[in-house]
């Protein structure tokens, strides 16, 4: 059975498709920059979903043109919400991108697994703990070796 092509079908498919593609990209991509891009896509889909929630058939945009009794308008509340969400999104994106720049400077890689590996290695080297940190026994649950005061690297410089 093929459903008739209606505006709501197209719009909801677009919104949900963008969210699904974006989340799939976040989970699957091995390159950190693509992960940020996928997050942007997912955010676009979520914004579209919110605006769709306030749409009304045969309504006008929520702007008064005269003093007369206004015609049916679309719901302004989701629109105001999305307005702020878009601006917050760009702030988050700038933060993510600047963290990526620092990761590139420090670990010289943008591959997700490799960066995590080097990060783990560096944490282990700084703490003087064994390298094989498994997920079942995280570092916090085992006794840490005490470090002499001059070895504690507060500034985070590379060794």
């Amino acid at each position: 059975m093929i459903p008739a092509v209606t505006p709501e079908l197209i719009l909801y498919t677009t919104a949900i498709g963008l969210i699904a593609i974006g989340l799939a990209g976040v989970v699957l991509s091995s390159h950190l920059f693509r992960m940020v891009l996928a997050l942007v896509i997912a955010e676009a889909g979520a914004n579209l979903m919110l605006v769709l929630a306030g749409y009304r058939w045969d309504a006008v945009a929520p702007i008064l043109t005269s003093r007369a009794e206004p015609a049916a308008m679309v719901d302004p509340v989701p629109q105001a919400l999305v307005l702020t969400a878009i601006v917050i999104g760009v702030g988050i994106q700038a933060l993510a991108v600047s963290i990526l720049i620092r990761i590139r400077q420090r670990f010289a890689t943008l591959d997700r697994k490799e960066a995590a590996e080097r990060m783990d290695a560096e944490i282990a080297a700084t703490l003087g703990a064994p390298r094989d940190i498994s997920q079942e026994a995280p570092l916090g649950e085992r006794p840490l070796p005490t470090l002499p005061a001059d070895q504690i690297n507060m500034r985070g410089d590379s060794p």
Partner: peptide, 20 residues
């Protein structure tokens, strides 16, 4: 991702589009 998309689609199909 596919499951999430399906779930959202199922939720959206119950919504009354165009009448908030």
């Amino acid at each position: 991702a596919g499951g999430l998309g399906f779930m959202l689609l199922a939720v959206a199909s119950g919504l009354d589009f165009g009448a908030p």
